[in-house]
Amino acid sequence: MPSRNEQDYLRYIYELQSKNNRGVKVGEIAKELGISKPSVSEMLSKFKKAGLVEFKNYGPVSLTKRGIRQARIVLRKHRILEVFFARLLGLKKSFHDEAHEIEHAISEVASDRLEKLLKNPKECPDGREIPAKQAKVMTLNSAPLNRQLRVLFSRIERKEEQSRINALGLVHGEKISVTKRISNGPLIIKVKKSEIVLGKNISSLIFVEADK
């Protein structure tokens, strides 16, 4: 289990990547967490060794599938707790801070029960989705055909390609499906009623989730 500090890192990287739909820069993480760049870099190399993130020298950082899974465990706890504090206890302002304190202490079993008790809320009080426990995380190129998928985020580095997939609607939370695939080649996805061809070197940089 990652330490409390590590959990925060993972959750922030996940949220930043979801928001920006790309890998994040060390500076961005440092700013978000209010920590110096060198300390962030230090933590990131530790993560890299553990297989939680990947990055090239000074390049943008992206969570790996493993990192995403870890981050989602923390994120789930955080957002379920937020619902608990906001809805049941009526803490309309401090629900985030309260959740932040307890997310590191609560076990998965307990947070799952709490989720049930709250009647399986879909979103946190800010309107952001609570990651489904049952969902499987994968890259788009290895996703099954004709199944509903939800986009998590990409780790595409080229600006041109980033802006293209953003404009086409391949952003966090968008529901898509893969309709055709050439084995080990490109695939066709359906997004916002249009069919888009994505090369393998693009689709392997996009993370999606599917219900098990």
């Binding site: 390609e161 490109p186 061809v197 994505l198 090369g199 393998k200 070197n201 693009i202």
Partner: peptide, 10 residues
């Protein structure tokens, strides 16, 4: 130069 990936609307 790098090889780009295809992103094309059908």
């Amino acid at each position: 130069g790098e090889q780009l990936g295809i992103i094309m609307e059908m």
